[in-house]
Nucleic acid binder design. Structure first.
Lengths: 339, 339
DNA sequence: CACATTAACGCAATCGATTGCACAACATGA
DNA sequence: TCATGTTGTGCAATCGATTGCGTTAATGTG
């Protein structure tokens, strides 16, 4: 239990040098002679000195840390975004603290509070599925740090955001199904409180319209798009009769639906073609391999991170809304036999 | 850019009450009258006060935060462990900061340093595949906080750890293959610097021995067990001829191997039976569904977390090595037609 | 050689919250 | 009435690092 708390004052005493000089030396200040710097550095390692960031951050009023709030770590998409965020952040000398909201507004609030009281320099957030209002975020912004939204933006004035072209991607996916002969396409959609899922639904609807197909609210199943939801939706699909296409707003639900349907003797894609969203690694494992939409997750993380850091460093006031483009990845779950 | 920095002194002035009283009131100290507490609380919310944890932590010399180092967030196993850790930690009033080493020793060292200088109260770590020595961890321990290992323990005196019965699980898996008629079983093994993978290999070897099969070093392929490694190993397997069973030390490699082998016209499990390790969700999606070993990931996180917190709180000195038991989950990748 | 610069370092206040100790006001018991 | 408690607050030091400003000593300039 050696509670060895070596401070700059210990070094200071050991060397008979004022602690302010020690501090400057450790920060490689140019106003300290090379010789003294070396003596100090040596003594520091000798004593096993470890800077106390708490004290430093308190004094300077900055932590060089950005907070990242993510709905779920277990989603491949988010862990990739995080990797992107970390890469950019580390290069710029920032630390990253990761928190998961588990799609709960209450937890999101607690996390924001904790980040605030720990004085992170900025926050990257993908809001939870329960988050309808952004008051708690307002509170954060008013108290200081900048916020950048990624993936799931918030209808929020005066904040940068990075997202993908959900509407267009969705439109393209639905159209692709139609061009492959589907006439009765069902949509698995996420919570409509999120703009993200509203846009995806809109894209689906407009593609139908463009091709003269009738939109029917009964063909839309809304859920959190978990594994169990996909199964549930698949059951509904079978009851509907005549469905020949499914466009799911994520891969998880698409895949569990495929599994269920296959068990029920449905042929994919002959009877029902399926498209997912995200391009999770798992989508190449399912049989038939899932046609889906690939998002530039890593890149999204990098961009979000650099937008935030720019704001922190330069106190920039202009806000950007970056929209990245995704890509339809065609696999076997939509390949109709050519007639 | 309202840099509203409301401190206890602002409240103190606004109310004509000493800041020490304010501090005590905000901490709900019993030595402050209910009336004053209320006045202070009201004023605090009115001014939008947000405690500065940096100052508080500096003074009290504790952060109520535990650091978690994880090799990769993208592995389902680890994100589940994290959820377990968080649950227990939050209940006990601790914050959690998550860092990923990406299997790099260098990053691991940097992370340790950062956690140290941020004065986390304790660390939970699953060491990287490159970590052969634990000197950097020693440094941490000497400077204060307790460490608990999870999943991948380190040959390290005086630290608690939580892991699973790798040897037994491995033995059972291999034996299961043998009992299903396999006579020429290959092992995909992880970096032997990790005790974890050494144990899994040992279990494999001993099961062979028990059943009179000859162990052959050429039947062991060592790698990081990534997707590409699985494919590479599968190619080797085909060159070997006569292989009728694969026991992979993780699911990722097992699954990519299965995909490759199927493409090459190999029948699973008729020609080659396969067992993985981890029970990733993906193992129910691959066809045939993968027989694998399920680990109590969430539970592991909870236990690791509570072991650490006990050490932090009670300054316990005894160290525990908890070994959780895993379970063989039989699916289709090993079901031989009954003769 | 006198004076102006510059380089190198020390002094002391500061960041915001916590806490041991002192102290005042009031109540209680003998 | 006086000694002794009890409650509720205030005072001031403290955690460890940073930094504006002042002070030397060394160096340069004319």
């Amino acid at each position: 239990m050696k509670k060895s708390k070596v401070t700059i004052h210990d070094i200071s005493k050991a060397l008979g040098i004022n602690s302010s000089t020690v501090s400057r030396a450790l920060n490689d200040s140019s106003s300290i002679s090379t010789k003294t710097k070396q003596r100090i550095l040596e003594k520091a390692t000798e004593l096993g000195y470890q800077r106390n960031s708490l004290a430093s951050n308190l004094r300077t009023n900055k932590t060089n840390t950005i907070g990242v709030i993510v709905p779920r770590l277990s989603r491949n998409f988010f862990s990739s975004v995080i990797s992107g965020i970390e890469e950019t952040a580390y290069e710029a000398g920032y630390n990253v603290v990761i928190c998961q909201s588990l799609e709960s507004l209450q937890r999101e609030k607690k996390i924001i509070n904790s980040l605030l009281s720990n004085r992170v320099d900025g926050v990257l957030i993908s809001i939870s599925m329960e988050t309808t209002s952004c008051e708690h975020l307002m509170a954060y912004k008013n108290h200081g740090g900048p916020i950048v939204f990624y993936d799931r933006p918030c209808d929020f004035e005066d904040c940068s955001s990075v997202s993908i072209n959900d509407y267009e991607a969705s439109f393209e996916a639905t159209e692709y199904l139609i061009l492959n002969g589907c006439k009765n396409i069902v949509h698995f959609s996420g919570p409509q409180v999120l703009a993200l899922y509203r846009n995806r639904k809109k894209g689906y609807m407009d593609a139908l319209k463009k091709h003269g197909l009738i939109f029917n609210e009964a063909n839309c199943f809304e859920s959190m798009l978990l594994k169990k939801d996909g199964i549930e939706h698949a059951k509904q699909v079978l009851k509907l009769k005549g469905v020949d296409g499914i466009y799911s707003a994520n891969d998880t639900a698409a895949i569990s639906a495929i599994q269920y349907l296959k068990n029920q003797g449905v042929n994919i894609p002959e009877d029902i073609a399926v498209i997912g969203f995200n391009d999770d690694p798992i989508s190449t494992v399912i049989e038939p391999a899932l046609t889906t939409i690939n998002q530039p997750d890593f890149k999204m993380g990098k961009i979000a991170s650099s937008l935030l850091i720019d704001q922190i460093k330069d106190h920039k006031t202009e806000r950007d809304s970056v929209v990245l483009s995704s890509e339809l990845v065609v696999r076997d779950s939509t390949k109709k036999a050519t007639r």
